[in-house]
Amino acid sequence: MKSLPILFLGIFFTLAFSWTGIVLVSHIQLGFLEPATPELTNAEEEAIAGVLFRDPDTGRMVHGRNQDGVQANPMPLVGSAQRGLRVYEQMGCLYCHSQQVRRQGFGSDFERGWGNRQSVPRDYILKERVMLGTMRTGPDLSNVGLRYSELWQHQHLYNPQITSPGSTMPPYAFLYEVRPINPVTGPSPIAIDLPAQWALPEGYELIPTRRALDLVAYLMSLHQDYELPEIKFTE
């Protein structure tokens, strides 16, 4: 095959082309992102609009600095919530739930109350695994930590029909344990209350396992209710 070098070069070129575009250029554009305060300042501590400002010494555009004494976002996941991400991954929640809010005017994410601004790359920089998702059999979960109580989350995971009749979400009852109430110590402080209609037999209680507690801690940690230099709340 005399055209083998041409074939090789051609394949190399086409792969290098897309790799440069999608991977390298995106990395140059976004690779430096760090948690940021809603507004950034220039070298003189004056607030700037957006993300970049012109350095007076070098004349180059540089990234603004975080304001002193203001919370920078996003914040890292810690402890139980961090373990809960693993449970979310293992349970396949990703197949039915997205974690990305689209801008107002593109779909109905804003109108459905899934978020009051579009998700941006910076929201994800501290996530060990990015659970963007491509399917919404169920609602978007970017801000689900702001919508429900822990009790609601437990009841819903134990059996979605309790909170959402007609739901097609599978029950995750195996993350819970039905056990007899200890006659000496009485009901456990972490037992989950169920509505009368779904009550367990007399003398039994519903106890979340470690994994259920972690998963709910993770769900409660999901929120994008802060502004960033590159994105403000939708009016």
Binding site: I11, T14, L15, I22, P121
Partner: peptide, 18 residues
């Protein structure tokens, strides 16, 4: 070969990418 690698990002339309 030229176009297909680039086409994958259509799964992120509306998503948090530039």
């Amino acid at each position: 070969a030229l176009f297909y690698n680039w086409a994958g990002v259509h799964h992120l339309i509306g998503g948090p990418v530039p």
